[in-house]
């Protein structure tokens, strides 16, 4: 069926705004993952969030009986209610921040960071499958939630996304100087009196918040793509840190816009088209080098 463009804004305002907001904000967080050479966090952390959601599903019968989810019975809690969404986000958050904490602690020991993240990803993936297996709704319902289809985003989810991503964007702007210096040259940051541990903790909170909320609203795959691909594309084009940040967010925004266009024009699921959009823009960012026949160092 062909999608009538006149209806798109009327019916999908939340989906469009959520996609554009994610496209704008995720790359700002992804910039730090990229520059700190921890891009793999972008893969591992959404998987932690997914594992948390699956775990939440698995223990939901016990939780409803002993703790309670907004006074809901189990059947209602398994539906798409505000309290249930908050419950899933809380578990996603616990696992994301827990994963970040573990990676940070192990990061103090010698060894390969990439191997640590790969191991964490493998464990979180296995955990997701096993917990989903034990879920009272079976795996399919868990997978459906983890897909986080932006097309069917509810008002409560959108409000949560808007508040969380708004906070992340504001914090990224407000603390940009400290976050940059602490990442680039932590010793000089200390000499200048910037609280390195405080800024590191802030960055962990911002990454964790983005991943937790993003995983359940836009979905882990879209989140990973928007965290990693725009900074990678921007690194090919930017000639300063300022332009890197702008280009990265513009590419994120462009990926979302292109994804929306592809989805509505060809009637395709929105999440994968945003990833495809980001991939197209990444490919385009390489064109100047192909035409010059050389790559920048």
């Amino acid at each position: 069926m062909e999608v009538e463009w006149s209806l798109v804004w009327e019916i999908f305002p939340l989906s469009i705004l959520a996609a554009l907001l994610a496209g704008l904000v995720c790359p700002q967080v992804g910039n730090f993952l990229f520059l700190r050479r921890t891009g793999f966090y972008g893969v591992a952390l959404p998987q932690f969030a997914a594992c948390g959601v699956a775990f939440g599903f698995a223990i939901m019968p016990w939780w409803v009986a002993h703790v309670g989810i907004g006074g809901l019975d189990l059947d209602t809690a398994l539906e798409d209610t505000h309290a249930a969404v908050n419950y899933h986000m809380a578990w996603a958050g616990v696992f994301t921040f827990g994963g970040l904490g573990i990676l940070y602690l192990f990061g103090q020991k010698p060894g390969s960071e990439a191997a640590r993240i790969a191991a964490a990803f493998a464990l979180a993936s296995a955990g997701t499958i096993l917990f989903a297996h034990a879920s009272p709704t079976g795996e399919i319902f868990v997978h459906e939630l983890l897909r986080g289809s932006i097309l069917v985003i509810g008002l409560h989810e959108f409000e949560t996304l808007a508040v969380a991503f708004g906070f992340v964007a504001l914090a990224m702007w407000w603390f940009q100087r400290g976050l940059l210096l602490v990442s680039f040259d932590p010793d000089t940051a200390r000499v200048l009196g910037l609280g390195v541990r405080r800024y590191e903790a802030l960055l962990v909170v911002l990454i964790g918040l983005t991943v937790t909320i993003g995983s359940l609203t836009v979905g882990p795959v879209v989140l990973f793509a928007l965290l990693v691909l725009p900074p990678l594309a921007a690194s090919h084009l930017a000639r300063s840190l300022r332009s890197f940040r702008w280009i990265s967010s513009l590419i994120g925004l462009g990926s979302a816009a292109l994804g929306l266009q592809l989805s509505f024009a060809f009637d395709l699921p929105l999440g994968p088209t945003i990833v495809a959009g980001a991939g197209i823009l990444l490919g385009l960012s390489l064109l100047p080098f192909l035409s010059l026949g050389k790559s920048r160092t």
Partner: peptide
Amino acid sequence: ENVHEVRIRPSQIIATDR
């Protein structure tokens, strides 16, 4: 498709809206 697990497309939401 597995009827338990269906990926929604824009036209289907518009069709349901109308």
